[in-house]
């Protein structure tokens, strides 16, 4: 099963660059219920490494999947606690 089957909310930060994808992802995940999955759509190439690093260093979130779809980098973050 792919992570994007379970998306609870989508955050569109296309066009925004560092540090916005991470900062906005943090704000958005706060409003996601526990067990929910946040989909983040970004055009920032650095977001692949940054959101990975942010998720690894942040408690209560888990990065499920990252997909490069044309110009858009898609991230799936689960709120685990």
């Amino acid at each position: 099963m792919s992570a994007n089957d379970d998306v609870t909310e989508t955050l569109d930060v296309k066009g925004a660059s560092c540090p916005m994808p991470v900062v906005k992802t943090k704000s958005a995940i706060d409003d996601v219920p526990e067990g929910g999955v946040l989909e983040v759509l970004s055009t920032d190439k650095g977001s692949m490494s940054d959101i990975d690093g942010w998720a690894a260093g942040t408690s209560g979130v888990e990065l499920l999947e990252q997909v490069e779809d044309g110009d858009v980098y898609k991230h799936y973050v689960e709120k685990t606690a």
């Binding site: 560092c18 540090p19 991470v22 900062v23 992802t25 943090k26 704000s27 942010w54 260093g57 942040t58 408690s59």
Partner: peptide
């Protein structure tokens, strides 16, 4: 400002 706002996102 970039480092501070990002660090805050880390909690």
């Amino acid at each position: 400002l970039i480092l501070a706002s990002t660090a805050a996102a880390f909690g």
